[in-house]
Nucleic acid binder design. Structure first.
Lengths: 190, 190
DNA sequence: ATAATTTTGTGACGATTGTCACAGGATTAG
DNA sequence: CTAATCCTGTGACAATCGTCACAAAATTAT
């Protein structure tokens, strides 16, 4: 739980008492590679703090998998829409490596948040960070070409480019695997 | 303020007392067409509830304006990253029509939220909705081609397609104006 | 009402991308 | 270690898209 506590302190003021009150809402879980954190059709009642390993979210449309996000250590993974509205998830979240997550249970988190303002603020900050991240990647597509998007990732998220395979990254960047391979070739040639 | 109150009630439980407590954080403002709600370089200390009219967010890169979002009646417009972190905004929000907004002041909203859980829940819900919307549009680019994206907007956001001019919409969809014109031609021909 | 400005449509052409196909390299399982 | 599987690179070709240019249409200002 050390990483999580550091993460929380980086976000907001958090007393030891709040930390104690938060405990009932938390549970640690190990996932094998290719194990689902969230399955299409499920309702998402959790925030997944990624302690080690990484996972991705993807839609499956006509049998084709399309990656929409990657979540690494110190990220919160969730389906924010399903989590908030109680609707079924339209996408999957799956471990790409052996993964350890600390799971925030929605119901228990809300109960804990009633008891102290700090937990409430934590929840709000997590959602806000999540929204910022979505905004960042959403913007990428409107501002930049495929080549510039790769460039952006290499500068701003080098870990992603290093850890995620080309095929998987291509899907996230919204281009064909072959295209990304050629973009990379063009770039390194320059 | 009628519209806002309805909007709030659609989101969360809200007593008359909370409504009273919220008032100091609210102010109504009229914007002319092409007036800025938020300017690049400013820190965003507001949530803008759009009462009437609509606005857009856009980046200006090398003199070229790129639209990243449109906000219509009953939407909340803001720079969620700047609002949360206090960093300067990298983009603008500008009225596309004469516009009436009800502005939530960050500082006063936080003070009000300390007094009642309902206001706190309202703030959280606004941010969550905002995150959902970002996620929705972010996903569009990873799942669909330009033509399919237009299709999606026509089905799921017909108001946007109707009210926003082709050139402006093209920028939002990440394609050239000419391309969108041709896509539309192709589609109506079928 | 008229002029000025903005928006849209379209042709031409080169650049980029998607798709199919296949081969070589890397990784994983047994 | 060997076989099977997955991942990556590349050629060919068609489809799509961006850019430039200009004219027509629509909107706005005077």
């Amino acid at each position: 739980m050390d990483n999580l506590l550091k993460y929380i302190h980086s976000l907001t003021l958090f007393s030891e008492e709040s930390w104690e009150l938060l405990q009932p809402a938390l549970s640690k879980k190990q996932y094998k590679k290719n194990e689902f954190l969230l399955h299409e059709g499920q309702i998402c009642n959790s925030l997944f703090y990624i302690d080690s390993g990484y996972c991705k979210s993807y839609y499956e449309i006509d049998g084709v998998k399309k990656n929409t996000a990657f979540f690494f250590e110190n990220d919160i993974a969730t389906n924010i829409n399903s989590f908030g509205s109680g609707e079924k998830s339209e996408f999957n979240i799956i471990a790409c490596e052996p993964l350890t997550a600390i799971i925030f249970d929605k119901q228990k988190l809300f109960e804990a948040a009633k008891q102290t303002n700090e937990i409430e603020a934590l929840g709000r900050n997590c959602i806000r960070l999540f929204a910022s991240k979505q905004e960042e990647f959403s913007t990428l597509f409107k501002l930049y070409s495929a080549q510039e998007r790769l460039n952006y990732l290499e500068v701003n998220h080098p870990d992603m480019v290093q850890r995620v395979s080309l095929s998987q990254l291509a899907s996230f960047l919204g281009v064909a695997r072959e295209t990304l391979s050629r973009i990379r070739k063009r770039r390194t040639a320059v």
